[in-house]
Amino acid sequence: MKSKSSKSIKIAMIAAASSVLMTSAFAASIDGTTNVRIGGKVQSVDTATHSVTVINAQGVTESFQVGPNIPNLDKLKAGTAVYGTTARPVRLTVLESSRLAAVPTQDGRETVAQVTSVDSQRGSVTLRDTQGAELTVQANSPGAVAAVVPGTRVLVNAVNPAAPASGQVPR
């Protein structure tokens, strides 16, 4: 009888261990959004869809939606310098201390940053990248940041930077 009970305990321990492993695997990345400042020179304006296409300083074309509250959108001409703020999706991947060789990509889609603060109640983390720039990420699932502590290194991945985003174009 004793062997059946120890066998049950072993099975329960294996199940619990695999559950912990699965939980930590999911906790290793956090999906969220961050606000970024974008700008450039107007390439085109579609007043029907409230869409503006700009070419930024790096020569990259970006399209984004502007709100219906933007006046005189029909008067915005090609070549006009504009700027705005838009929400962009990001994925944070917690780096293990043994993964010291994480390097930012040259296209800017990935960068390494360090967590400077965590707001567990709001589900947000503030990061500082290797250049000193700060970035706040709002987690899609607020509980995802509960286990993150200041000092943690993360790989920041711009999930799909080429996708149209929502933003505003100031007058």
Rank of each mutant, 00 (worst) to 15 (best):
S5V: 04
I11V: 15
A15Y: 05
S24H: 06
A28P: 01
G32E: 03
V36K: 05
V36Y: 05
I38G: 00
K41S: 11
Q43K: 08
S44E: 08
T49Y: 10
H50C: 07
S51Y: 02
T53R: 04
V54A: 01
N56F: 00
G59F: 12
V60W: 04
T61L: 15
S63E: 07
P68F: 03
N72K: 14
K77G: 12
A78K: 15
A78Q: 12
T80K: 02
R88M: 09
R88Y: 13
R91Q: 13
T93L: 04
E96F: 03
S98M: 14
R99F: 12
A101V: 13
A102C: 08
V103G: 02
Q106F: 06
T111R: 11
V112K: 01
V112S: 09
A113D: 04
T116W: 11
S120G: 07
Q121I: 11
T126M: 06
L127E: 08
Q131K: 15
A133C: 04
L135H: 06
V137Y: 01
N140K: 10
S141H: 06
A146W: 06
P150G: 08
P150A: 11
V156Y: 01
N157H: 14
A158H: 06
A158V: 00
V159Q: 10
A163H: 07
S166M: 11
R171V: 09
